[in-house]
């Protein structure tokens, strides 16, 4: 369970999170939505300890994460932009991460599922954007952790890879894992998400199921409901 209390984060003068309160129960898929620059990535990075809050607390399974690092053993993270050391080969990168984590991994199976075998000996800076994202996905899904955080997982994926991704998410969800996913593809969100967390102007503007959102905004179309949510504010 993730508990976030009164989280504040600003980058010099830019106040990004202004008192975020959020509770995420174990199990299920939570979609974190919001316009560009609303602080989704910042919120995720705060949970990972990559961004350090100015104020507020984050607890993971009742434990304060401040200045901790061990808890990341139980989190998998897919960064929004797949930045990898360009001079490494795909296989070297995967091996390195496995070595660093010293945990059993299912990398071979995932490599096969995403059809990455032909690229294993290629350097990362020679890969196409979508192929990089597949490598990114392999790295994220190859360990068995209870919390999986995906920042824009669909970016650059072709339809087949997208299907594979959805299968993977469904398969891992069945094991009782918790997902935090950000995405701007509403169709994808509608398909996978159990609950929506809507971030606007530095705060949680809405939290609930898609149905609740539709009732609130009197819009049956999800995309329109989200748009209405944003418009209500201004």
């Amino acid at each position: 369970m993730i508990q976030i209390q009164e989280l504040h984060k600003r980058f010099s003068k830019n106040k990004v999170l202004i008192g975020v309160d959020l509770e995420i129960q174990n199990g299920g898929i939570y979609a974190i939505l919001g316009p560009n620059g609303s602080g989704k990535t910042t919120l995720i990075k705060a949970i990972l300890g990559m961004v350090l809050p100015n104020k507020g607390k984050i607890h993971l399974n009742q434990k304060d994460i401040k200045n901790q690092w061990k808890y990341r053993e139980n989190i998998e993270y897919l960064p929004q932009i797949a930045n990898f050391p360009g001079n490494l080969k795909v296989s070297e990168l995967i091996k390195m991460i496995i070595d660093l984590r010293s945990k059993p991994s299912s990398s071979d199976e995932l490599i096969q599922r995403f059809g990455l075998e032909p690229f294993l000996d290629k350097k990362l800076n020679t890969l196409s954007g979508g192929t990089k994202q597949k490598v990114n996905l392999v790295l994220t899904f190859m360990f068995d952790s209870p919390l999986i955080i995906l920042d824009e997982p669909t970016t650059g994926l072709d339809p087949i890879a997208l299907l594979t991704l959805k299968e993977l998410i469904a398969q891992e969800k069945k094991k009782g894992k918790t997902f935090l996913i950000t995405s701007h593809i509403m169709q994808f969100v509608e398909e996978v998400a159990d609950e929506i967390v809507y971030l606007l102007e530095g705060q949680i503007y809405f939290k609930g199921t898609i149905e609740e959102l539709q009732n609130l905004t009197h819009k049956t179309n999800f995309e329109h409901a989200i748009a209405a949510l944003t418009a209500q504010n201004v």
């Binding site: 990972l48 300890g49 990341r72 993270y77 930045n83 991460i97 984590r101």
Partner: peptide, 16 residues
């Protein structure tokens, strides 16, 4: 030059 490597490591269970 190792900025990418660093970013990758920061999300891993490793002390900063």
């Amino acid at each position: 030059n190792s900025r990418e490597f660093t970013e990758l490591l920061l999300a891993q269970p490793i002390k900063r």
